[in-house]
Design a protein around this nucleic acid. Structure first.
Length: 573
DNA sequence: GCCGTTTTCGGCCCGACTGTTTTCAGTCG
């Protein structure tokens, strides 16, 4: 799929235009196209071949022409032209906090700065003082920005940021006078990665709340501490911003700071069309404040129902909310069991009994032990004999346990030739089988797709584990034909796993949404290797909600008997 | 560059903060 390559080019074009002080609206158009193409799960080449590129709102003649040019020739002439005179390092400088296109362009013109290294050297030699607008503080901020970029270049996985946010919220609720308190931003939307943590407080005494915040034990550095906003770096290098707003504006501020940016832009356009104005203080007609206390009132005044944060990506949720067609999203309380768990029989840390105790404490009625299969030596995969022993132990445990049913399962490897790592007669003894790819990532798209489709045709395979293989921030997804995958899953009645482990979240939100459209069920499992990791179900549910999934779309919202009946159906096909 | 019961030109989301100025540009979310 060339979508990513093409989106990257438009991103670069937007960056270059910014440095060259191009038309800001043209820049916005490119950025919008980047987002649209990045969100698409369909191949742009297919859309282009069908002549349907310009059907997509936000893609017009200009951009579709460039896409077609790239598909035909492998390059975009306009981009090649634009690149002249703008070194790549200059574009990288844009991501330094505190440095924007104006400053970057000026530094390039006046000092010949072409990269972060150049800038660092120029500052050291004092070449910046004397330049227009370059005071002492600004230079200091630049240095700090450069340092930050070097230490923490990328975004953090949601699973790292979420516990930090929860702890801060818990501590502040205990120690300071806060009315409402709520994390906002991409964290509240349960995006798979977050850049920083935004926490919003409704209250009056901003100064003392922020002082308490800045004084928390986990705070390593205080960047700013004022009346309405505090900003700190906590242990681990994560930046946390706290904002205090009057309670009458809490809903407006929460809406505003939750974003996403494109959701907010769309919302404000609708407000403007109705002769209204929306900002972080409320919804206004002229100077008259109409509402702002809660998010619900704001959405209502704009003619739609409240939109759950996970949907706020401008992917059709505003249109759906306007006609009352939002999905009734799955909730954490709907989950009746964890469908992917490892015990100390393979590479997990805990006994099956200890895992079962945690599952029960989490309110589940069942759980699947799915240790690795024999070929995955690195994870101490079970042999045929030890899996049989494990099944016996599970049966024995079940006879003594109350209120918790352990299902015998396996995460069985899909081998390089598409066969499974255990024979069918053994798989037939299991309650739940996850088939996963753990090797041969570099095979061709056709080959990998074929392997997965073959596995799905096996009557004992209940779900395909982490179906794209990506590791957030570490490894790209392997090449796989999503359309064929979904068609085969629908035809064979095989579920796709939403692996909730914080580095995976795979299937991701967009794939979940397409699966739902094709009638493919999703099974959520944490892939936990110890009971302490089982909380990550929360990440899975967040991702499922981002994928517009409802209770009925997810396997483990079923009762045990429903689940058994469902699994049996495929085996009898 | 995109878009259109305000339709082929002229709009395009909004405000705070910072650092530098002396009325504002740049950056950020």
């Amino acid at each position: 799929m060339l979508n990513r390559e093409i989106a990257e080019i438009f991103e670069r074009m937007a960056d270059i235009l910014e440095i060259k002080a191009g038309n800001p609206f043209r820049i916005r158009s490119y950025r919008k196209a980047v987002r649209i193409i990045g969100d698409m799960t369909q191949d742009v080449a297919e859309l282009a071949a069908a002549g349907r590129l310009t059907d997509i709102p936000g893609i017009g003649e200009g951009i579709s022409g460039k896409i077609k040019e790239y598909l035909a020739t492998g390059r975009i002439e306009k981009f090649e032209e634009m690149k002249k005179g703008v070194p790549g390092g200059l574009i990288a400088l844009l991501s330094v906090p505190g440095l924007g296109p104006r400053t970057v362009a000026m530094l390039h013109k006046e000092l010949g700065v072409e990269s972060a290294e150049d800038l660092r050297a120029a500052i050291k030699k004092g070449r910046l003082s004397g330049l227009a607008g370059m005071g002492e503080k600004k230079i200091g901020n630049m240095l700090r920005g450069l340092k930050l970029i070097r230490e923490f270049g990328s975004r953090l996985p949601l699973g790292i940021a979420l516990p930090v946010a929860s702890e801060i919220v818990a501590r502040l609720s205990r120690t300071a006078v806060v009315g409402e308190i709520e994390p906002a931003g991409s964290l509240r939307r349960r995006a798979e990665t977050v850049g920083d943590i935004d926490i919003l407080v409704g209250g009056r005494d901003g100064k003392s709340i922020i002082e308490t915040f800045a004084g928390l034990a986990m705070v390593r550095e205080v960047l700013a501490s004022g009346e309405t906003k505090g900003s700190v770096i906590v242990e681990g290098g994560l930046q946390v911003d706290l904002r205090v707003v009057p309670r009458k504006s809490f809903g407006a501020a929460l809406q505003y700071f939750t974003g996403s940016k494109s959701h907010n832009i769309h919302l404000r356009r609708i407000a403007r069309e109705k002769g209204l104005k929306i900002n972080e203080y409320g919804l206004f007609r002229g100077k008259k404040m109409l509402c702002g206390r809660t998010e619900k009132e704001i959405y209502k005044r704009l003619g739609m129902c409240w939109i759950p944060p996970e949907l706020r990506e401008d992917r059709g949720e505003i249109e759906a909310a306007s006609v009352g067609k939002l999905p009734r999203l799955i909730r954490a309380a709907d989950i009746k069991g964890d469908l992917h768990l490892h015990s100390q029989w393979s590479d997990g840390a805990a006994s099956i009994r200890a895992i079962a105790a945690r599952a029960k404490a989490m309110g589940y009625g069942y759980m699947v032990i799915s240790d690795h299969s024999r070929s995955l030596k690195i994870a101490r995969g079970l042999s045929v004999e030890s899996l049989r022993k494990q099944i016996a132990e599970i049966r024995e445990l079940n006879s003594r346990l109350r209120g918790m049913r352990i299902l015998a399962g396996s995460e069985v490897d899909i081998m390089n030739d598409g066969s499974l790592d255990f024979p069918d007669e053994l798989l037939a003894e299991l309650d739940f089988v996850i088939a996963s790819i753990h090797g041969g990532f570099k095979q061709s798209r056709e080959k990998i797709t074929e392997r997965i489709v073959m596995a799905m045709k096996n009557p004992y395979v209940s779900a395909i584990g982490h179906p794209t293989g990506r590791l957030i921030g570490e490894r790209e997804a392997y090449e796989v034909d999503i359309d064929r995958l979904l068609a085969a899953a629908a035809e064979t009645g095989t579920a796709l796993e939403l692996n909730a482990y914080y580095q995976r979240l795979d299937a991701g939100d967009l794939l979940c949404r397409r699966a739902k459209e094709k009638g493919v069920r999703i099974s959520i499992g944490t892939d936990a290797h110890s009971p302490e990791q089982m909380w990550m179900m929360e990440l899975g549910v967040g991702t499922a909600r981002r994928g517009w999934l409802e209770k009925k779309d997810v396997l483990n919202t079923m009762s045990l008997s429903e689940l058994r009946k469902h699994l049996k159906k495929k085996r009898q096909k």
